[in-house]
Design a protein around this nucleic acid. Sequence first.
DNA 1: CATGAATGAGAATTCATTCAT
DNA 2: AATGAATGAATTCTCATTCAT
Lengths: 212, 212, 212, 212
Amino acid sequence: MGKKPKEDSSTRIIQAAAYFFSRKGFSGVGVREIAAKAKVNISMVSYYYGGKSGLLKAIVTEYFSHVDSIAIKLSSKSLSPREALKEFICEMVYLIKEKEDLCKVAMIEMPIELPEITSLKIELLKNNMKLMIQSLSNGFNISDPKKHIIIGPAFLSLIFSGFMFGNLIKKISGEKIDSAFYKRYCDTISSLFLDGMNGIAKPNKKEKKYEN
Amino acid sequence: MGKKPKEDSSTRIIQAAAYFFSRKGFSGVGVREIAAKAKVNISMVSYYYGGKSGLLKAIVTEYFSHVDSIAIKLSSKSLSPREALKEFICEMVYLIKEKEDLCKVAMIEMPIELPEITSLKIELLKNNMKLMIQSLSNGFNISDPKKHIIIGPAFLSLIFSGFMFGNLIKKISGEKIDSAFYKRYCDTISSLFLDGMNGIAKPNKKEKKYEN
Amino acid sequence: MGKKPKEDSSTRIIQAAAYFFSRKGFSGVGVREIAAKAKVNISMVSYYYGGKSGLLKAIVTEYFSHVDSIAIKLSSKSLSPREALKEFICEMVYLIKEKEDLCKVAMIEMPIELPEITSLKIELLKNNMKLMIQSLSNGFNISDPKKHIIIGPAFLSLIFSGFMFGNLIKKISGEKIDSAFYKRYCDTISSLFLDGMNGIAKPNKKEKKYEN
Amino acid sequence: MGKKPKEDSSTRIIQAAAYFFSRKGFSGVGVREIAAKAKVNISMVSYYYGGKSGLLKAIVTEYFSHVDSIAIKLSSKSLSPREALKEFICEMVYLIKEKEDLCKVAMIEMPIELPEITSLKIELLKNNMKLMIQSLSNGFNISDPKKHIIIGPAFLSLIFSGFMFGNLIKKISGEKIDSAFYKRYCDTISSLFLDGMNGIAKPNKKEKKYEN
DNA sequence: CATGAATGAGAATTCATTCAT
DNA sequence: AATGAATGAATTCTCATTCAT
């Protein structure tokens, strides 16, 4: 194999942006820092992406396109609801593993109100939810339809939880993120979402019948 | 005694800070905006909190003190594991209901690397995790101890999920956040965490035995 | 002896001011720092001295009153020109030893243009020069009267030189300032001013007659 | 290549800085004032010099490079000690004449403790003293080596004395600084340093043998 | 494509001072 | 005599962006 081809400027910029946005948040980073990491001139950011917020738009857009693809691919397979959920979770974890910075940016910026990208975010999220509901939740008979908007975000938050707290966890527990971790993570989150704590642990005391 | 404080500037400042931090993120807000909303002179922020990051420290500290209190209170009652979890979730939701801005700030800033508060965050989180594990998870017989650091964050993310995506959800679904919502939210998240999708919905189609 | 009486606020303030002005220059210090060192409330500075520049005025005024006193005292003794100069130098060094901060402030602020104290400085300096010329230089027959305004400052600079560079010298050479130093300093500066390098060192090579 | 620099902003900035630093002291000037005089945008100061203290560093560094050059040039000539001293003084006066602001800044800031430049100052001064001792004082047989650290600063202070008190002198005596002044200054300071008051004036009264 | 100087607005913070208590 | 909250101006520095080269 030859020498690794050096990525072009615009790619380096967006990667550097994802790197910093995911660690410091959009507003916590300057284009200077991004340009420096990408080893390009500052003006190149405006040149390629039309400004700082263009970077965020590009990142968020790419994130949703990946998730949408997963949902679409899943729709085409005819899996049982449980299988579909499990596979979705695993695909998502794989996506995060491959593009951690990108995914974290999208998730971190979700609750942040940034006028320039709000409409984009809403549009993409709306479409994405439609696709996901289509491919996942029609297998379930959810009594109260209002629960949809609770379960949806809960599902996503669950999947991301390990990565959002990742850095702190690492600093606290010293746990390292290897591929064994991803496997374990995938299984645990799937069990949790499908069967709750029941799927993970048996109460070990004289627990009586629970009254919910 | 000095000039009489008009109504309590420092309180108004911290509230304004929480308001904006929760919506725009720490770095997305300026002290000017905060001071304006709090109707105080800009320099009062430094005067009372020693600077912008002092505000964040105060907020994060308060958040953890609340959560710690909940955990401690729970420890003193002797509840079954399921009961304890359910009650913890409800208490947390109540806390979020009462101090939404404050809680959201703490959660939003969790994955953000801000050198000035990193050590504080770690210290508080470490202590908080100890208290929570003490009061909650000793009722469960978790096979692999490594799952702790997956379940912990998952649990917290689950509880917060509705509020993190809250604004977007509101814009997309038009759902309004009334006290019925909190009740429903509490129940749904509890079921989900305790029993997973099984606790919420029965598969309605030709679902065969699942293989996990 | 009883316990050392704690100096009153206004004294502590002026001492703290001299301490910092002599180290950081007038503009390099804030009243906060001064008040903190003096252990008084910030407003006390304005209360006692009418503001920050009042502090400098007080310091400069005191410095000149000391130097004037020395000159006046010298006038009353009838000494030879050499004796007078030597004694003046020694008295000045003694003054600096006793009130180093105060003297350094006066000297440091001499070349600094600070509108609020310029007229004060000029008035005091004019009067001081008159007294000094009276008490010192009428013993010398200085050919060109224009040399007066060269020799005057040179004389003062010479006396202060060791203290102006003091801190740097200490850091570079490790020399410590004990009372032996003051003695040696006094002698050396006196010799230098009276006899030049000739008074201090003999050229050690085959130096021929000098042509000035 | 970027936009063509108009006439040389960075030079105008450093000159404006020297102008103000020499008159008001480093802390007494704001970058605004400097930028205004240099007719550049305020941010250019940080752009070129990395901040206000970068300006001072540049000025101090340049000052020492000039003085070092003089010392080095002198070393290469083989002059008698007296000749060397005289020439050094004249070269210094010439330097001050040409770059008065710059030199005054260096001298004024010598006793000021500014953490950001302390180490730079020490390093430069140490090196400079080595060069000066090398080129000047090996012609003299100074009995007590401890006198070195007295004579060194005294020498420098002497040379600068006229310029440090310059403004005040001008205001008091009305003397104007023309090239005749520099000539006279040079001669007077040289005489003073080499032969002391003896070199300048003969005692005119009943002076007896002096006892040092 | 790429550069780097330049801009002007805005960032956070610190300043000396005042004033009601 | 002393306090400390409050003010508003001024501090330095950084921001994203533009533009001529």
